[in-house]
Design a protein around this nucleic acid. Structure first.
Lengths: 343, 343
DNA sequence: GTGAAAGCGCTAACAC
DNA sequence: GTGTTAGCGCTTTCAC
């Protein structure tokens, strides 16, 4: 059924090696006659080499594995596009897995990737499998982390400057005259982007001489309606804040709803800045001021780096690549004109 | 460096065949002693078989390839999740490619998948490579299309009932007393979902005794701002329509903006129904009535089907699986309460 | 109960 | 210039 190199060799009346040579462009040494003959048979039989056999021989698959945890979030879908484009342009195929933030699944996926002999792995780590990550880098396996820093391990990383992003958002609010700024974050995950955003919030306040009021920091569970509840409770206090800084794009939508249900107006009664620009941010009412993160670039850079690790000889020192977010100013803090503050 | 089956055999003092048997659970015939010994060495050396070699031998990779065209759209991200989950549960890995609606890229990807010996392919086809699709099904290669029907070819398909979805949306508008309903669609792609949505629109009108006014059908390019422009122009006419039916989730956002810029109110001045429920639909102002499509299910079913084609013997006849959309009624057509009209 | 050997499809070192 | 051969890591038939 399937046509192999032997079939070509037989039909062309040459040996497998000759076919292989011609296949791989080592024409130089062959008669034009042979080359033409072989090429013709290849065309005729529509022969395509079995990548499995090639890979087994060469111990290189030209496959990169990526493990993500939440494709639903457009941020990650965009990262994936960056990775995929870059892989394709460089002759690699992409194998994708979803860890769903589950460390057992993550382990399973990493092991499966290794068995499949992928050339490299890109991962948004759960940060709960340190022994595994460590083993990979100890073996000099091409391994690049994205978004989350893994504390205590020196691994290639492409991430965002979350402190800066957070500071930009909060300082914009301060610049608009706000000084009672509530912060909303999800709980649990003690991962760097979350911690850095909290840090950025605090830094912005401190460097502007505003005292940190811990009652304004709201850690709210990621369950349906919890954020809205918390917002409504917050806004019904006598001295309600004059601004909210949201650290997540889904969360922002719920905050908006809570504000609306309290009969309050953005930005007249309260200002709002969201984290993560999305396709819908500009279409909300009012158009939302958000922190844009170059997600496609993150994917692209991570893919480039893992390919570099695969193809370069000698061991490269781990590099951390930090991308800068931009604040996109719209109307949710009282400003009218839409503009970009660039890096 | 890498540990192979020979290493295990040597260290355990047995032959490769014995190790292989034990590895694959053919314990029955072996001494408990041998089994324990081998298992112990495997643990010690953290041996994991090379999937490449296994696949080359068995001619089965347990890899499924998927070709999509637009991950940015949350609809597709969700489909991908359904596919990925299902693959994982069934012991398959997923290889993903982006065709970007480009038939040359699509061809390249299909060929790469075949060279890599993937066990099956799922595709949202550009519908421009009929000869390729045909060749696959002629060879009985496990091949499942999603979303778009390929005219003239009898291929397994998992798709949505776009006629019904469109009808449900338009009939809801009619039920609210609207009888001048504008339709917005993107041009070019003569693909079944688009055509079916247009058909649904017409059917709904006809079956309700409303004459089709072709000046209300707007085919607008997918370029930044074009839709908004068209909406504004439409709404500045003397006898403007009393409702708009949008056939795409991105388009809907622009329509809303156009309406807003004209100083009009939804639903007071004009009603709006959007196609494709999204995370943000309920947070728009007003909360949007939309046609929900079970995208995760589509992914899941497509994956299940391709696995069935891979694992079942004998040739199965192509099946078309049509999923039913639901209309989610919110406030953009004058209704207040949010409710689900189920299938 | 276990081992030897062939072979999956390909590449490359070596011979002529 | 081209063919022969060995081998990538694994499975499996066939001996013993």
């Amino acid at each position: 059924m399937k046509v192999t190199i032997s079939d070509i060799a037989k039909k062309a009346g040459v040996s497998k090696s000759t076919v292989s040579r011609i296949l791989n462009g080592n024409y130089g040494q062959n008669t034009k006659d042979t080359v033409d003959k072989v090429l013709k048979v290849i065309k005729e039989l529509d022969y395509r080499p079995n990548a499995l056999a090639q890979s087994l021989k060469s111990m290189k698959t030209n496959v990169i594995g990526i493990i993500l945890s939440n494709l639903k979030n457009p941020f990650w879908a965009r990262v994936l596009e960056g990775v995929e484009d870059t892989c394709r342009k460089n002759g690699y195929n992409l194998m994708i897995c979803n860890s769903n933030e589950d460390e057992l699944l993550e382990e399973e996926h990493i092991k499966a990737f290794l068995m499949r002999q992928v050339d490299g792995i890109i991962i948004n780590a759960t940060v709960k499998n340190d022994h595994l990550y460590k083993r990979l880098i100890d073996q000099k396996f091409p391994f690049v982390t994205i978004n989350r820093k893994i504390p205590g391990l020196d691994i290639d990383l492409v991430t965002m400057d979350n402190v800066a992003g957070s500071m930009a958002g909060v300082e914009h609010l301060i610049g608009q005259g706000k000084n009672s700024i509530a912060l909303f974050v999800y709980p649990q995950e003690n991962v760097s982007p979350r911690l850095d955003r909290i840090e950025g919030y605090m830094k912005a306040l401190i460097s502007n001489g505003i005292e940190i009021d811990h009652s304004l920091i709201h850690v709210v569970e990621e369950k349906q309606g919890r954020v809205k509840e918390a917002v409504k409770k917050l806004l019904s206090t006598t001295n309600r804040p004059d601004a909210i800084f949201s650290t997540n794009n889904m969360m922002t939508l719920e905050i908006l709803e809570g504000i609306k249900e309290m009969g309050l107006n953005v930005p007249k009664d309260i200002s709002l800045v969201g984290y993560d620009e999305t396709v819908w941010s500009m279409h909300l009412n009012p158009p939302l001021t958000t922190v844009y993160q170059p997600s496609y670039d993150m994917g692209e850079l991570a893919a480039k780096r893992v390919i570099e690790l695969i193809e370069k000889t000698g061991d490269l020192q781990p590099i951390t690549h930090i991308l800068q977010p931009n604040l996109i100013i719209r109307e949710s803090c009282g400003t009218k004109k839409e503009e970009f503050i660039s890096e």
